[in-house]
């Protein structure tokens, strides 16, 4: 069994402050097909609550969240 997530596109949102990470990811997710997964990298601590809020509202799914020091990685599946 493999739980490897196949990332189609990586979005580097490091260093960006609110509201940019969410604005950029909402644009970025439209660049891939429904069902595909993107990776969004941020350093904005607020995105830990903002990304799930955005995903829930926009109808997309965060399949995994990783954190290493200040770097946060979201794996987001486009559902709509």
């Amino acid at each position: 069994m493999s739980d490897e997530i196949q990332v189609i596109k990586v979005f580097d949102l490091k260093g960006l402050a609110c509201p940019m990470p969410v604005v950029k990811v909402s644009k970025g997710i439209k660049e891939v097909e429904v069902g595909q997964v993107i990776e969004a990298q941020t350093t904005d601590p607020g995105s830990l609550s903002d990304f799930p809020a955005w995903a829930k509202t926009s109808g997309n799914e965060i399949v995994k969240t990783e954190q290493e020091d200040k770097l946060i990685k979201f794996y987001i599946k486009r559902l709509v």
């Binding site: 509201p19 969410v22 604005v23 990811v25 909402s26 809020a53 955005w54 509202t57 926009s58």
Partner: peptide
Amino acid sequence: FIIATGAVAMG
């Protein structure tokens, strides 16, 4: 403007 652009991101 932060709220406005954030709201667009939220659809």
